[in-house]
């Protein structure tokens, strides 16, 4: 079975936030919770780059390593899902995550955290069958419908790629060869312990 990944080509991302908007709309993500966001560095200076970031669905995911209730599991496709049945909102995964992916709704006036929410690679949740209950808890399950994550599908410049890691790495390699430059597959070394050899 394929190992699915995300790849953001920072030489193509134009910070249009279509991925963020598509994600929020697809999963009805509430105000203040961002499963995906676009980070811009060197704003307004030469070398400015934007990267679309969400859960990278890491190999040996550090969130899973620190979770005290073992709510994380990795699917056969390599997608890291977490159970909102089990999650206690402790926030350890937020500290462990190198990408700032875990998000927590505020549930009381005292700032205590609700159950963690993050990108599901549009694969729904680990506990439920696709349907209304799963949608309310985890958002849409596009993978069950044979579709790829909406963020990458909606990307206006095809900077954000999702799918079989080997295929998207190949697409990226061909792009870099054709245009003659590439700042690398951002986050791959951290998430997947490998990079796209150019």
């Amino acid at each position: 079975m394929a190992r699915v990944k995300f790849l953001c080509d920072a030489d193509r991302c134009i910070e249009c936030n279509a991925c963020v908007t598509a994600c929020k709309n697809e999963h009805e993500v509430p105000w203040g919770i961002n499963r995906r966001r676009v980070v811009t560095i060197n704003d307004g200076k030469p070398g400015e780059r934007s990267v679309s970031m969400a859960c990278m669905h890491c190999t040996d995911a550090p969130c899973a390593a620190v979770c005290p209730v073992n709510c994380f599991q990795t699917t056969a496709d390599g997608i890291v899902l977490h159970s909102k049945e089990l999650c206690i909102g402790c926030g350890y995964c937020f500290y462990a995550c190198p990408f700032g992916a875990p998000q927590y709704p505020k549930v009381t006036n005292f700032g205590s955290r609700g159950k963690m929410d993050k990108c599901t690679y549009c694969a729904g949740g680990p506990d439920d069958k696709p349907g209304k209950a799963e949608y309310e808890r985890y958002g849409a399950n596009r993978l069950a419908e044979g579709k790829l994550p909406i963020c990458a599908e909606m990307c206006s410049t095809k900077a954000l790629l999702a799918g079989d890691g080997e295929i998207i790495a190949q697409i990226y390699k061909e792009r870099v060869l054709k245009r003659g430059y590439g700042s690398g597959a951002w986050g791959w070394q951290t998430a997947y312990r490998e990079t796209v050899a150019l």
């Binding site: 936030n17 963020v20 908007t21």
Partner: peptide, 20 residues
């Protein structure tokens, strides 16, 4: 801005865009 259009009354009424 990429998020809004024209005078913005409609797009500022869209919660996904307004949040950005």
């Amino acid at each position: 801005l990429v998020e809004y259009e024209g005078g913005g009354e409609e797009t500022r009424s869209n919660r996904w865009l307004a949040e950005l």
